[in-house]
Each structure stands twice: as structure tokens, then as C-alpha cells.
């Protein structure tokens, strides 16, 4: 059994203040650009570019956030994106688990070849395959309107290589004796996957889910091509709207970037707690 409370002796190193001494400067390096982003999002447009820069805007323009959510329609874009990433993530978890199980835990003849095939699908950049894909989806009538979401959702349900590969790597790390024992007991492969492998993969499943959400959150290319109606825009498309031909509304864009990051950060905070408890319930010894 393991949790952050009963940490084993072997993991402890040095007193607490030493750990803080290591953590604090590192965190500060990552934090400063973020603080800069938030500070800029609270500026007036004419305060964004002044040298030397204004570090703490006074008075802070809190209404930038409200403008973004209400006036610029980000409330709606957020709901669209949350709905989209939920469907995509459920599909990703389903397909990545099945496929990765086949590539990591079942012995079959063409397994390695299949694995290379899976990886090879990651190697061509999206904007090369999007032209033939677009003409295909278009013939199927899946462009624009609500059907326009299908090209964004379908690939996830059939499995994206990145997530399959990730799951495979984690599944390979699980001792085979566990599934061998279950096989002896007459458990089916699906049973082994559901009862033994999946519970052990919880940190990996969480990572996959989180990554899938991030990917949906930041993808611009696919939504730009398939979603044509502003009603159905995702946050990434909304963000692009601040970049005018001549002027970029940086303060609004950064306010939107900050505010749209919040749901992902909430998911992260919830998920990272699980990372700590992780497999403590599974009881491998």
C-alpha cells in the first residue's frame, strides 16, 4: 500500500526545506511567463506595448475577461469545446485501450508489424493528409453544421496512434504473470483487460484523457476546415479571431487564453491527486 502519507523510507531525501529550495526556483521560472500573460490580459489596449513595460496594470481591466466570455462568445465556444472533448476523450480511451492491449498484451504473429503501422500513421503532418481527407468527408456530407463535428470525432473512436502508442508503453510495464494467472483461471482476454490490466493502467488512462483534452483544446486546423458556423466554434478558433490583419487584440486574446485554460487546469488538479494515490488500491507486492 502506498500513498503520500505513508511514504517509504527509501523515497525520503533530506529535510523539507531542502526540497522547497529545489522546487521554488524551478517553479518560478515556469511561472513568470504565465504571470506576464495574466498581467497583459488585465491591461488596456494602449498599455500592452509600452517600454519599459507595465508589470502590474493599474487599474486592472477585469472587464476584459467578462468581455471575452460574454461579448466575444467564449462562453459558448467553451461549452462547444467541452462537449467535443468529452466525446473525443471517451472514444480515445475506448479505442486506445483495445488497440494497445492487442499490441502489448496479446501474442500474435503480425504484432510488431502492426505496431510499426500504427506508429507510421503519426509520421505525415496533418496539413498534408487534410486535403484528401477533406474531399472524402465532403462527399459524405460531413462538412459544416453539426455533421462537421464528425470528422473531429470519428478518428478518436477508431484510435489515434499517439494514444495507442502511449497506452502500449504503459501496458508493457505491467508484469505478465498477473494476466497469465488469470488466463489459467479461465478468464477471457476481454476479462483480463477489464479486470486486471485496466485497473493497473489508471495513471496511463488519466494521462491519455488529459492529453486528449489538451489536443482537442488546442487544435486549430481541423476545426478551421470542418466547422464553418460561428455557433459551433471551438475556443481555438475563437482565439484566432483576435488576430486581425493589422492589429492583434493581445489583451483580449490573452484574457481568452487564460480563461479558456481554466477547465483544463481543473481537470488537471483533480487528475494529479489521482497520480499520487495511483495504484495504491491495486496491491501489487
Amino acid at each position: 500500500m502506498r500513498s503520500d502519507l505513508d511514504e517509504p523510507v527509501a523515497l525520503r531525501s533530506g529535510p523539507r526545506w531542502r526540497r522547497q529550495l529545489a522546487l521554488m526556483p524551478v517553479a518560478l521560472l515556469f511561472l513568470i511567463p504565465l504571470l506576464w500573460m495574466i498581467s497583459t490580459s488585465l491591461k488596456r489596449h494602449d498599455q500592452v506595448f509600452t517600454w519599459p513595460p507595465v508589470l502590474i496594470p493599474n487599474p486592472a481591466q477585469w472587464h476584459n475577461f467578462l468581455d471575452v466570455l460574454v461579448k466575444d462568445g467564449f462562453g459558448r465556444y467553451l461549452l462547444n469545446t467541452i462537449a467535443l472533448s468529452t466525446v473525443v476523450t471517451v472514444g480515445t480511451l475506448f479505442s486506445a485501450t483495445l488497440t494497445a492491449y492487442s499490441l502489448a498484451r496479446v501474442d500474435w504473429k503480425w504484432r510488431n508489424a502492426a505496431f510499426l503501422l500504427v506508429i507510421s500513421t503519426m509520421l505525415l503532418p496533418d496539413f498534408v493528409t487534410i486535403i484528401p481527407l477533406f474531399s472524402m468527408y465532403q462527399k459524405l456530407g460531413l462538412v459544416g453544421g453539426v455533421p462537421g463535428f464528425l470528422p473531429l470525432v470519428l478518428p478518436a473512436w477508431f484510435g489515434k496512434a499517439y494514444f495507442i502508442f502511449l497506452m502500449r508503453q504503459f501496458m508493457l510495464g505491467i508484469p505478465t504473470e498477473l494476466s497469465d494467472a488469470a488466463r489459467m483461471d479461465g478468464c477471457s482476454e476481454l476479462g483480463i483487460l477489464l479486470r486486471i490490466v485496466l485497473p493497473l493502467c489508471r495513471p496511463a488512462l488519466l494521462s491519455v484523457a488529459l492529453f486528449s483534452i489538451i489536443a482537442t483544446w488546442s487544435d486549430v486546423l481541423q476545426p478551421l476546415v470542418y466547422l464553418r458556423d460561428e455557433k459551433y466554434f471551438t475556443v481555438s478558433l475563437g482565439l484566432a479571431q483576435f488576430q486581425g490583419r493589422y492589429v492583434t487584440q493581445w489583451e483580449q486574446m490573452l484574457a481568452a487564453a487564460s480563461v479558456t485554460a481554466v477547465p483544463v487546469l481543473i481537470v488537471f488538479v483533480l487528475a494529479q491527486k489521482k497520480f499520487v494515490r495511483g495504484i495504491s488500491t491495486t496491491g501489487i507486492k
Binding site: 503520500d4 511514504e7 523515497l11 525520503r12 531525501s13 523539507r16 526540497r19 522547497q20 529545489a22 522546487l23 524551478v26 517553479a27 515556469f30 511561472l31 511567463p33 504565465l34 506576464w36 500573460m37 497583459t40 489538451i214 483544446w217 488546442s218 481555438s236 482565439l239 484566432a240 488576430q243 492583434t248 493581445w250 486574446m253 490573452l254 487564453a257 485554460a261 483544463v264 487546469l265 488537471f268 488538479v269 494529479q272 491527486k273 499520487v276
Partner: peptide
């Protein structure tokens, strides 16, 4: 660094993770 328990660990993890969800255009500008 972020694996071992420490005071404020969740906050540290969140700070290190957060940049990965900042959109590219914003990252470049910052």
C-alpha cells in the same frame, strides 16, 4: 522533483503543467 511529497506539491505540479495548455500564438507573443 515533483514525484516526492512536499508542501504545496499540487500547486507546483499545476504551475509546471500549465504552460502546455497555452496556445501557440500566446506563447510566441509572451
Amino acid at each position: 522533483l515533483l514525484h516526492r511529497p512536499a508542501r504545496g506539491l499540487a500547486a507546483y505540479r499545476t504551475i509546471i503543467f500549465a504552460p502546455s495548455i497555452v496556445p501557440a500564438a500566446a506563447t510566441a507573443a509572451i
